Amino acid sequence: MLESAVEWALPMVISLCEFMGIFIVAVSALGSFGRYLKSLFTHAPCDIKFQLANGLALSLEFKMAAEILKTVLVRELNELVVLGAVIILRALLSFLIHFEMKQPHSS
Rank of each mutant, 00 (worst) to 15 (best):
F19R: 13
I22A: 15
L93K: 01
R75E: 11
A65K: 05
E100G: 08
A57W: 11
L83R: 06
L37K: 13
K102G: 03
L10C: 01
I87K: 06
K49T: 07
L83P: 00
G84I: 12
L2E: 03
M64Q: 15
E76V: 13
A29R: 07
A85W: 00
S28R: 11
H105F: 00
W8A: 15
F41P: 05
L60Y: 01
L40M: 07
L80G: 10
Q51H: 13
L2P: 02
M12R: 15
E67M: 08
A91I: 03
L77N: 02
T42E: 02
M1D: 12
G21K: 09
L10W: 02
S94D: 00
K70T: 06
L69P: 03
E79K: 11
V25F: 03
S59H: 00
Y36R: 04
K102R: 08
M64K: 14
H105D: 02
F33W: 03
I22S: 08
T42W: 05
E18V: 04
C17M: 07
T71Y: 14
V13K: 14
F95K: 09
V6W: 06
A9H: 14
L16V: 09
E79F: 08
F23L: 06
Q103A: 10
L96R: 10
G31M: 08
L56E: 08
N54G: 14
K38C: 07
A26V: 12
L92E: 09
